[in-house]
C-alpha cells in the first residue's frame, strides 16, 4: 500500500485555482520531491496531505486514512515541518521537545534526537534566541519526536547557508535510512536531484512531470551540450544536419550544440571528416535545472 495517495486534488482561493488536479502516490521508504517555482501550489498541496487545509475536491489518503476526517490518527503517523510557523518565544528547546513528545502516544526519546540534530548544547535556550538554522533543526526534531512513518518537510533548507544545507541533506538521508518516508518540498534543483527518488514538478497548480531525477533530465530536449572553438570555420548546413540536434548557437567563433549522445558522436565524426580540430572541447549533461526550466516553460 502507498503511504500517501493524492488523487485529483483541487483547492481554490478567492475563485482562483491554486491546486488544480494534482495526483501522485508516495511509496513506503521513498524520498518524494515536490518541486516547483514560488506560488506553484506546493505548500497548499502538502498541507492538504497533512490535514492542515481542507481540499475543495479530490482524495487524499495517508496510510489509508483521510487527513481531515481522521485528523488525530493521521497526525500520529505524520510529522510536519511547516514553511511558516514559530513557537512561543519564551519556550526553551527542552520544553518544546518535552511538550511535543507528550502529544504523541508512542513518542521517540527526544534526547538522542536533540543530540543528532546538534540541539543538545542549547536545550535551555529560548526559541526567540535561536538562529534560523537552529530553529529549522528544532522543527525537524519536533516533526520526528512523535516517531512518525512519514515526514513532510516544506522548504527546510531555504535560508540556510550552503554548509548547513549540505548537513541537512545528510540528515534527510538519515531520516529515510531510519525507515521514515519523506515528502520533501523544495525549489532547489540540486537538492531534489541529490535526494529524491522521484519528483513531481508542480507548475501553476498542476503536475507538469513526475519521474525520477534522471528521467526528468532525459525528457528535456537538449539533454547534452557540446561546445568547442573550431580551428577552421565549419559549414553551418553540416551542423544543422546533425542527428537529434536540439539547438545550434554560433557566437564569437564558438560552436555550442545541444542534443543527445548520438549528436555528440556525429559531431566527432564530422570534425574528423573535415579535419577540423576542436579547441576547448566541453561536453556537459544538462542539469535538472535546465530540465526544470524546460518543463515549466513549455506549459507557459
Amino acid at each position: 500500500m502507498s503511504v500517501i495517495e493524492v488523487t485529483d486534488l483541487r483547492k481554490s482561493y478567492g475563485g482562483r485555482p491554486v491546486v488544480d488536479g494534482v495526483s501522485f502516490t508516495v511509496e513506503e521508504g521513498e524520498i518524494f520531491g515536490v518541486l516547483g517555482p514560488n506560488g506553484a501550489g506546493k505548500t497548499t498541496t502538502v498541507e492538504c496531505v497533512g490535514g492542515l487545509r481542507v481540499p475543495d475536491a479530490g482524495r487524499v489518503r495517508v496510510t489509508g486514512l483521510d487527513p481531515v476526517a481522521d485528523h488525530r490518527r493521521v497526525a500520529e503517523v505524520l510529522g510536519a515541518q511547516l514553511q511558516r510557523s514559530e513557537l512561543q518565544p519564551k519556550l526553551t528547546v527542552r520544553e518544546a521537545l518535552e511538550l511535543y513528545a507528550a502529544f504523541y502516544p508512542r513518542p521517540a526519546d527526544w534526547r538522542p534526537l536533540a543530540e543528532r540534530l546538534d540541539l543538545a548544547p542549547m536545550l535551555d535556550t529560548r526559541f526567540a534566541r535561536l538562529s534560523g538554522g537552529q530553529k529549522q533543526r528544532l522543527f525537524v526534531a519536533l516533526a520526528l519526536v512523535g516517531a512518525p512513518r512519514v515526514v513532510v518537510l516544506d522548504e527546510l533548507t531555504t535560508g540556510l547557508d550552503p554548509r548547513a544545507r549540505r548537513e541537512t541533506w545528510q540528515l534527510i538521508e538519515d531520516i529515510r535510512a531510519g525507515g521514515v518516508t519523506v515528502l520533501l518540498v523544495t525549489h532547489f534543483m540540486e537538492e531534489a536531484q541529490r535526494l529524491c527518488d522521484r519528483i513531481a514538478v508542480i507548475d501553476r497548480g498542476r503536475v507538469a512531470a513526475l519521474d525520477t531525477p534522471a528521467g526528468l533530465i532525459r525528457r528535456s530536449a537538449g539533454a547534452t551540450v557540446i561546445s568547442f572553438t573550431p580551428s577552421a570555420p565549419l559549414d553551418e548546413a553540416d551542423l544543422r544536419a546533425l542527428p537529434q540536434l536540439a539547438s545550434v548557437d554560433l557566437k564569437d567563433a564558438r560552436v555550442t550544440l545541444s542534443g543527445t549522445d548520438e549528436t555528440v558522436n556525429a559531431v566527432i565524426t564530422l570534425l574528423a571528416r573535415t579535419r577540423v580540430t576542436a579547441h576547448q572541447l566541453r561536453v556537459t549533461d544538462t542539469t535538472l535545472d535546465d530540465a526544470f526550466l524546460d518543463l515549466t516553460e513549455t506549459t507557459a
Binding site: 490535514g51 492542515l52 488525530r72 497526525a75 511547516l82 514559530e86 502529544f103
Partner: peptide, 16 residues
C-alpha cells in the same frame, strides 16, 4: 500573537 506567529498552526499539525 500565537495566531500571527503560526503557533496555533504548528499545533494543528499534531494530534492535539
Amino acid at each position: 500573537g500565537y495566531r500571527e506567529r503560526g503557533i496555533l498552526r504548528r499545533m494543528s499539525a499534531t494530534p492535539v
